[in-house]
């Protein structure tokens, strides 16, 4: 227990978390501090490129094995299954309608790549190695949860809710294409593939760009994410009833437990298990909200965005990640 607390305390005073906290506090204090939209977009492109490339280069160095395939499959299964767990929990402890609960559940089956990047950065700082292909596992976990959520709504007969009533568009070919080919996924997988093709030699050529500045860029990006999460929570905190608040913390812990089991069964390294826990615990706030607006327009976006971005994202960043690392270390050594 002392080890977990020490690790949590160490994580809380790292520059990336403190910059996130600065943004969060500034937003709550209604400061005019802001990161221009185009800069934030550029920073996220940089992070995706760097994390994807480094993951691919690591795979090139260590080779492809059965564990890689099994890890991808495990990620796929987790993404399909987690929305059912989230949906059950939501229906049990909150009064959300089927459509709202399904929409929230989709977010929790999908992943937050920023949480993944932060977790991998914490691992690097702790001197722990992890499987480079975990980047690809994160990428495959982005979309399946959306299908599970839409199935949950279809199974319930799509009851009309709210003032809009009726049903949404569901999943058509165009939406599927938008989900699978969203910019973040394309860049992440593309950079991963380029890293895998060019290997350590390719990494050496662009190392000065994607390795050394990485932590600094992540600080600036998390400052912006702190501002975004803080503003979102400030403006919609009235929505957060105790049940929803509890869900926003219980669900990542539940997801992390399933990730721990999956990572352990796969025989991943401690770092890999911690990343599997982190992606299972994280909730999407970029790709899935956009998909839900098209597929389930009756669902209230303020609920799922506030939960994913205002509660679960800060929880994972500050408390969750050190807990996941400590638990993975205690159970699987390292």
């Amino acid at each position: 227990m002392d080890g977990i607390l020490a690790l949590a305390a160490e994580n809380l005073i790292s520059p990336i978390i403190l910059f996130f906290a600065l943004g969060f506090a500034a937003a709550f204090a209604r400061s005019d501090l802001s990161v221009p939209e185009a800069v934030a977009k550029g920073l996220s492109l940089y992070l995706l490129l760097a994390i994807g490339f480094k993951g691919g280069a690591s795979v090139a160095a260590h080779g492809v094995d059965a564990t890689l395939i099994m890890s991808l499959l495990a990620g796929l299964v987790l993404s399909f299954v987690l929305p059912f767990v989230a949906f059950g929990l939501l229906r049990m402890i909150t009064g959300l309608s089927v459509i709202d609960a399904a929409a929230v559940a989709a977010h929790y089956g999908s992943i937050s790549i920023v949480t993944f990047v932060t977790a991998s950065s914490v691992l690097t700082a702790a001197g722990l190695v992890f499987e480079g292909y975990m980047v690809a596992v994160a990428a495959v976990m982005e979309a399946p949860a959306i299908l599970s959520a839409l199935w949950l709504v279809a199974r319930a007969g799509r009851p009309a809710t709210g003032s809009h009533g009726g049903s949404g568009r569901g999943l058509d070919a165009e939406l599927l294409r938008e989900i699978l080919l969203n910019g973040s996924i394309v860049l992440l997988i593309g950079a991963f593939a380029i890293g895998a093709i060019t290997g350590q030699e390719g990494l050496a050529r662009i190392e000065a760009f994607i390795v050394a500045p990485f932590q600094g860029v992540l600080c600036l990006f998390l400052l912006d994410m702190g501002l975004v999460a803080g503003r979102g929570l400030r403006d919609t905190r009235g929505l957060l009833r105790p049940g929803l608040l509890a869900f926003g913390i219980l669900m990542p812990l539940t997801g992390a437990t399933l990730g721990l089991v999956a990572g352990g069964l796969l025989g991943l390294s401690v770092g890999g298990i911690m990343l599997m826990m982190t992606v299972s615990a994280s909730a999407s706030y970029i790709a899935v909200p956009a998909a839900m607006r098209v597929a389930l327009p009756e669902a209230n976006p303020a609920i799922y965005l506030t939960l994913a971005l205002g509660i679960t994202f800060p929880f994972n960043l500050t408390i969750g990640i050190p807990i996941y690392l400590a638990v993975a270390k205690v159970i699987f050594g390292g």
Partner: peptide
């Protein structure tokens, strides 16, 4: 609007 005030500032997703 009906859901209250909103701003483009700080939107990480196109969802809102």
């Amino acid at each position: 609007g009906r859901s209250g005030r909103w701003s483009r500032e700080g939107q990480v997703s196109r969802a809102s």
